[in-house]
Design a protein around this nucleic acid. Structure first.
Lengths: 95, 95
DNA sequence: ATAATTTGGTTTATAAAATAAACTTCTTTA
DNA sequence: TAAAGAAGTTTATTTTATAAACCAAATTAT
């Protein structure tokens, strides 16, 4: 009846991050922070979780002299998102 | 960009309960329990929260000699659900 | 008859999660 | 060179989800 919802994606902030990355093809930490309205600390933690699960890739480089963290969605992350959306339909398609 | 998600509905079990009640026009506790696969304790707690928010109505009657708890969606709950679905779209409609 | 089990839950305790506050390091500006 | 800002991370706190333990009444078994 109801399909289980991936707990990693069923979180407002992590869902926003993944959603953003799917549209964006690589996004920097400050941009994600601005778009989601999250605090830096919260964002950092959630990015770690998504990264640990292999849903996103995190690249730490420098932009001139300043550190620059770039995030990208992975195929695993994209698949997880698609599955999540599919599962959600079992809750939303109220007949 | 991303619309806030009603925390009361952004919960796997509570969303399942509300989804069920929208389809069902009144459902008994054991039926909800069976359909959602939740434990009685968890279900009881989540029903209380939805009821406290006015999203559902809980009627306690008797079925013969046995207690019988019937839940129904309220107009408030239906509206909240519709708003929640609308807000979700801002995360799911990835362009 | 009465002991054990089942039904229909509620209350309470625990585990997990979200979130922000505090901190760090380096850089730029006053 | 002191103060402020940028870019994060770590840690602590609060909230939430979840299940375990419990309770009362009814049913079934002995």
């Amino acid at each position: 009846m109801f399909k289980p919802l991936d707990p990693l994606l069923h979180s407002e902030l992590r869902l926003a991050i993944v959603s953003l990355l799917i549209s964006a093809e690589g996004a920097e930490f400050p941009y994600i922070k601005e778009q989601t309205g999250a605090t830096a600390g919260n964002l950092s933690v959630q990015i770690d979780k998504l990264s640990a699960a292999g849903y996103i890739e995190v690249e730490k480089t420098f932009k001139g002299k300043k550190p620059c963290t770039v995030c990208r969605i992975t195929p695993t992350g994209l698949k997880a998102f698609e599955d999540y959306v599919e599962a959600l339909k079992s809750y939303l398609d109220v007949k």
